[in-house]
């Protein structure tokens, strides 16, 4: 009882006063209990890690609308990412957690967990770098090199079919994806001009149906789930006023996170663009 009270007191002190000296867990050459705390880290962890290296993935990893590795994620433990879940798993590597969360875990447990932050990748170069970084941390650097080489080769073999068309990546409720994003990188690579750049909009802005029609994009890129879901937010993308604008549909699972699916998204985008009539004729 007294010990418990003392412990509680120490914890209380620890949270406001000087933190205890964390006892580092030495990063092993090949971590065996890797916990991922976000969907985007899952996209890299699943193809790079051995199956038994993964202790847990984010709860959305198996959602086929959001995750490109939904099928491979089957059988893995899924967590919401609360501190107690993570501590109970005794991870030897935490991926996809911002620094403040790993700090909080360290303060709570008095142990420093090896962690790799993997912030959202907004360009292909960042995806490549993150693959290399994570592959090394998992003890499979060669696997990383091979994956990057495959992706490089696939992208190099693609012909940009955009031909300078102006495209709008238009999401439910009229959100428009702007420059400096992964979607913008995809568009640029496919030879498209992002309408958000023409209109001077930030990375995420809102454009009403009237505004998008007045801005006259040559092509609309919409997310696959907004075609499948019938709700108020998605209904706006089915508005008859948009029927004259050619439409390209990409699974959100390929574009929401930077990962190997970037190549799938680029291939699908180019294939769908190739099927559209030539803008110059």
């Amino acid at each position: 009882m007294i010990r418990a009270a003392a412990l509680a007191g120490i914890l209380l002190l620890a949270s406001c006063a000087a933190p205890p000296v964390p006892q580092p867990i030495t990063p092993s050459a090949r971590p065996q209990r890797v916990v991922s705390l976000n969907l985007c880290a899952d996209q890299l962890l699943v193809p790079l890690a051995d199956r038994d290296q993964i202790a847990a993935l984010n709860m959305n990893a198996r959602d086929r609308w959001m995750s490109a590795v939904a099928a491979q994620a089957r059988g893995h433990r899924l967590i919401r990412g609360s501190a107690e879940e993570v501590l109970a798993l005794a991870p030897d590597l935490i991926v996809g957690a911002p620094a403040f969360r790993t700090d909080a875990l360290r303060r709570m447990s008095g142990r420093a967990y090896p962690a790799l932050e993997l912030p959202p990748a907004n360009s292909y170069a960042e995806i490549r770098a993150q693959i290399g970084e994570l592959a090394s941390a998992l003890g499979h650097p060669d696997r990383g090199h091979r994956l990057v080489a495959r992706m490089d080769a696939a992208l190099a073999g693609m012909k940009a079919m955009g031909r300078g068309r102006v495209a709008a990546y238009y999401q439910r409720r009229g959100y428009l994806t702007g420059t400096g994003t992964l979607v913008d990188a995809l568009m640029t690579r496919a030879g498209l001009v992002n309408i958000a750049a023409k209109l001077g909009k930030p990375a995420l802005s809102r454009l009403s149906l009237e505004q998008i029609i007045a801005a006259r994009p040559d092509v609309l890129i919409v997310e696959e789930d907004s075609q499948a879901l019938d709700d108020q937010g998605a209904q706006m993308l089915q508005h008859t006023a948009l029927r004259h604008i050619p439409r390209i549909v990409l699974p959100q699972a390929w574009t929401v996170c930077g990962g190997p699916a970037f190549v799938d998204a680029a291939a699908s985008l180019n294939a769908q663009l190739a099927a559209l009539p030539d803008p110059r004729t």
């Binding site: 959602d63 609308w65 959001m66 439910r172 409720r173 009229g174 009403s208 149906l209 879901l229 709700d231 108020q232 937010g233 998605a234 209904q235 706006m236 508005h239 008859t240 006023a241």
Partner: peptide, 22 residues
């Protein structure tokens, strides 16, 4: 529906934005 929670506002406060003849 992962987006449903965002739509609460629209249903509680009402809007005529982006309606069609349907």
């Amino acid at each position: 529906n992962p987006f449903a929670a965002i739509e609460i506002m629209a249903w509680l406060m009402g809007s005529l934005e982006d309606r069609s003849f349907a």
